[in-house]
């Protein structure tokens, strides 16, 4: 345990990763916790755990990430792991609209079992892939996120885009979220993120959006 310090100062935050099979949850996790990417990672069975300790506002935070199986038949029967989670990354694949369609279902599952105060971030993964293969425009997802009070980011576990930001936001979001106005925070964060990260491709994406329609 490299990050081991005086335990009295360390906070533990549980974050769950959910979303359809194959959207890259396990790689997001490995990128964040071990800075690794596995091109042919196998489907997750049950749950996997990983932890990473980071410093936030001068406090040590031990992030404990629960990576869950996307395939129904590989999901554990219990839903208890939602209970302790302070945040959730709901991941879809921007090149698979079907995975984005499932977001509703995942959100319902989450709210059925998780604490009501859980902070949820909608994460469109695989944003490194060419715009031509994109099936979910960020505006659409952003709007959905705003409507449902979710944070929103597009990430790439492959080239590391926004992976740190996504996890750190969800880990921090918990505190700022609870202390300040719960409505504004996610919007601001998502605005910021989209402005910073998608300034350039936003025009392209609007085109793809039209094309899709």
């Amino acid at each position: 345990e490299r990050f081991r310090t005086d335990q009295e100062d360390t906070l533990r935050h549980e974050v769950v990763l959910i979303g359809d099979s194959g959207v890259g949850k396990t790689n997001l996790l490995s990128r964040f916790t071990r800075n690794e990417f596995n091109h042919d990672s196998r489907t997750t069975i049950g749950v996997e755990f990983s932890t990473r300790t980071l410093t936030m506002d001068g406090h040590l935070v031990k992030a404990q990430i629960w990576d869950t199986a996307g395939l129904e038949r590989y999901r554990a029967i219990t839903s208890a792991y939602y209970r302790g989670a302070v945040g959730a990354l709901l991941v879809y694949d921007i090149t698979k609209h079907q995975s984005y369609d499932s977001v509703d279902r995942w959100l319902k599952e989450l709210y059925d079992h998780a604490d009501a105060s859980i902070v949820v971030m909608l994460v469109g993964n695989k944003c490194d892939l060419s715009e031509s293969s994109r099936e979910v425009p960020p505006e659409e997802a952003k709007m959905y996120a705003d409507e449902n009070g979710l944070l929103f980011l597009e990430t790439s576990a492959l080239d590391s885009t926004n992976v740190e930001v996504a996890f750190e936001t969800i880990l921090q979001g918990e505190d700022t979220f609870k202390e300040s106005n719960p409505k504004d925070t996610p919007v601001v964060l998502s605005n910021e993120a989209s402005q910073n990260q998608f300034a350039a491709p936003s025009t392209d994406s609007s085109r793809t959006c039209c094309r899709n329609i």
Binding site: I45, G46, V47, F49, R73, A76, I77
Partner: peptide
């Protein structure tokens, strides 16, 4: 063994206990 058998519940229990 549990991963090979793709038994999600047992995998979950074992990993959880390990964690």
């Amino acid at each position: 063994i549990a991963v090979e058998a793709a038994n999600a519940d047992i995998v979950t229990l074992l990993r959880l206990a390990r964690m």
